[in-house]
């Protein structure tokens, strides 16, 4: 049933948001045939209700919908599913709006009626992006968890070390003895498991990264 799916890759979870039932159904048939997992929604609010239970990789969002259009859904969607890659589906003459959507964080836009290759490649690009975002988020969360284990004094010493200050300089700034600073430094390296100052710096940078969906 899923001939395109490579065995070592999990299926892409796609949310289709379109008010036209025929379009929803047709996209479901096409994308399932391509080996993806599909959830369909007739409107934006219907999608948001489901996001608690389902983690989606890609959202296919119809630009022209009653009540709340696709463009208006982009921002709340960025908060509710920050990693998901959003592909806008536009009707005739909606290209300027689609471009505006790209500026607001959409990955791509596809004009109706579309070919299967065009929609599938857009879905795959969005899924890759989503995967990348998810990986970065995971690493950041790990780094933050490690750094959270340090005491306040250790955190102070760590930030100075990561900025490249020598122990004597740190001791002068913190009005501590160089010996005390050296003890804190050893604790930091032990707690974070960093093998070198360079590794420590990389961990701090990861932890300070901004939200992936917004960067």
């Amino acid at each position: 049933m899923t001939p395109d799916t490579t065995p070592n890759r999990p299926p892409i979870v796609i949310a289709v948001v379109d008010d036209d039932e025929a379009v929803r159904d047709a996209l479901t048939v096409l994308l399932e045939t391509a080996g993806h997992r599909i959830h369909t929604f007739a409107s934006g609010p219907a999608l948001f209700e489901a996001l608690d239970q389902v983690e989606v990789d890609v959202v296919l969002l119809d630009m022209r919908m009653p009540e709340i259009g696709g463009l208006e859904l982009l921002e709340p969607l960025g908060r509710a599913a920050p990693d998901a890659g959003v592909v806008m589906i536009t009707g005739h003459g909606d290209v300027p709006m689609a471009v505006r959507a790209l500026h607001r964080g959409a990955v791509d836009f596809v004009e109706k009626p579309f070919s299967d290759t065009r929609i599938l490649s857009a879905v795959e690009r969005a899924a890759e992006l989503a995967a990348g975002r998810r990986a970065r988020r995971t690493r950041r969360d790990e780094a933050r968890a490690i750094l959270a284990r340090l005491t306040p004094r250790e955190t102070e010493v760590m930030s100075m070390v990561s900025r490249g200050l020598a122990s004597k300089q740190i001791a002068g700034l913190l009005e501590l003895s160089p010996r005390t600073v050296e003890i804190h430094r050893q604790h930091v390296m032990a707690k974070t498991g960093a093998g070198s100052v360079a590794e420590l710096v990389r961990m701090v940078v990861r932890a300070e990264l901004a939200d992936p969906a917004q960067g």
Partner: peptide, 8 residues
């Protein structure tokens, strides 16, 4: 709309 559905 119908055309998009047909294509899919």
């Amino acid at each position: 709309q119908p055309l998009a559905a047909i294509a899919s």
